[in-house]
Structures are given as structure tokens and as C-alpha cells.
Amino acid sequence: MPRITAPTVAEHREAQERALLDAARAVLAEGATEIPGFAEVAARAGLARSSMYQYFRSRQHLLTALIEDAFPRWSERVEAAMAEAGAPDQRVLAYVRANLDLVADGEHAIAAAIASIAPRDVIAESSAAMHRQLIAPLAAALAELGAQDPAAMADLINAVVHAATRQLEKGADVAAVRQHTEELIAPYVERAAARGIPTNSGNNTP
């Protein structure tokens, strides 16, 4: 029987599965062109190959688990950064910074590797869901700033972020790319914040 390294069996299993997923993510980050093999993943996690079958029935099952792990991880990190920022103008800038930080940390490379391996319909569905989840708080912040078309403005900001992402993937300096991106977006949100959040002039209720 394997040695339990956590207070409970459930926590032990969760920790082991997390270790295996992180090992598989490391393989993907190095530019893997196929689903990571069980032997390689287990070795990186410091576990026996047979341990893989306790958590994943097949390499396809491992890929599904990686997809289910990667996309929510990205969304949650961006949403957390925005929630901490407070004011709507700062939430927009936090959105930009968090996305670029994720790219710099290698998360985009992992997502790109998954996208190149997984079936197109699966990736399309997961990507669309993540896009909707990311756009919602960004559009909400832009609406608070008085944007006439928050969704369209959110798409434009995303276009700038995607261009910055391509620069980072080509090896550009992270600090420089982040500075240039904020120089494009910050003036808009700062002007919008200075104008004040629009109110209904006909409503005098405090």
C-alpha cells in the first residue's frame, strides 16, 4: 500500500493528482507535440508509472484533465487580480497585467500546446467558455467607466493584449511589453475615470 503523505486519503489523492498534472504541464511547456506519456509524467512527479492509472484511465483522459485544469486556472487568476484592484479603471489595468503575467509565466505556452494536441471542437468550446468568462468582468468595468459599447471596447483591449502576447512569445522583454501595453490603454481608462461614473440625473435618491 502506498505511503499516505497527507492528513487524509482524499487529500493525499488530490495532492498526487496535482503533482501529476503539474508534471504533465511541465512537459507541455517545453513544446510537446503530443499528449505527454505516462512514463515521462510519472517520472517527473517522482512517482511510479503505475500510479498514473489510479488517476487517469488513458492519455486522452489525461488531456481532458489538463484542459479542465488550464482554462479555469487562467480565468480565476485574472478574476482574482481584478477583484483586488477595486475601482473600475484599475480593474481594467489589472486585467491587462494579469493576462500578460500569465503569458510570461508560461501559461499561454501550455494552453497553446494543449490547443495543438486536443480535438478542435473540444478546444473551441473550452476557449469560447473562457473568453466569455474573461470578457464579462472586463466589460462590466468598462460599463462602469461609461463606455458606450463595453463589449466592443473589451474586444479592442483584448486585441492589444493579444498583440502584446505575440511579442512576449517572440522573446520581447516582459517589463517593456507591459509598459507599452499600459501606455496604450491607461490614458483611456484614466480619462474615463476622471469624467466620473455616469448617473441618472433624474434620480435624486441618495
Rank of each mutant, 00 (worst) to 15 (best):
P2C: 11
R3M: 11
I4T: 13
T5L: 14
V9Y: 03
V9F: 07
A10M: 02
R13Q: 13
E14R: 14
A15P: 04
A15M: 11
Q16V: 15
Q16L: 14
R18T: 15
R18N: 10
R18Q: 12
A19L: 11
A19M: 08
D22K: 03
D22S: 09
R25P: 00
A26G: 08
V27D: 04
V27H: 00
L28E: 05
A29V: 07
E30R: 09
G31V: 12
A32V: 07
T33H: 12
E34M: 08
I35H: 04
I35N: 01
P36E: 09
G37E: 08
F38I: 08
A39N: 12
E40A: 12
V41W: 01
A42L: 10
A43E: 14
R44I: 03
R44E: 01
A45K: 05
A45T: 05
G46T: 10
G46K: 02
L47Y: 04
A48F: 02
R49G: 11
S50N: 15
S51R: 14
F56Q: 02
R57F: 13
R57H: 12
S58A: 03
Q60E: 15
Q60C: 00
Q60R: 11
H61G: 06
H61Q: 08
L63F: 00
T64Y: 00
T64I: 01
L66H: 04
L66T: 01
I67C: 14
D69F: 05
D69N: 05
F71E: 13
P72W: 01
R73E: 14
R73Y: 09
W74K: 05
W74P: 00
W74Q: 14
E76A: 14
E76S: 08
E76H: 10
E76L: 11
R77A: 15
R77Q: 14
R77L: 14
E79I: 12
E79D: 11
A80E: 12
A80G: 02
A81R: 06
A81N: 04
M82N: 05
A83R: 10
E84T: 01
A87S: 13
A87R: 15
P88H: 10
Q90R: 15
R91T: 07
R91N: 03
R91I: 03
R91D: 02
V92P: 00
L93C: 06
L93P: 02
A94L: 07
Y95M: 11
R97M: 09
A98M: 11
A98R: 01
A98Q: 04
N99D: 12
N99S: 15
L100S: 09
L102Y: 09
L102D: 08
A104K: 01
A104P: 02
D105H: 08
G106D: 03
G106M: 01
E107G: 04
E107N: 10
E107L: 13
H108M: 13
A109M: 08
I110R: 02
A111N: 10
A112L: 09
A112M: 06
A113E: 06
A113T: 04
I114V: 12
A115W: 07
A118H: 10
P119T: 09
P119L: 05
D121H: 09
D121E: 09
I123K: 05
A124Y: 05
A124P: 05
E125P: 05
E125L: 08
S126M: 07
S127F: 11
S127C: 10
A129N: 08
Q133D: 15
L134F: 07
I135P: 00
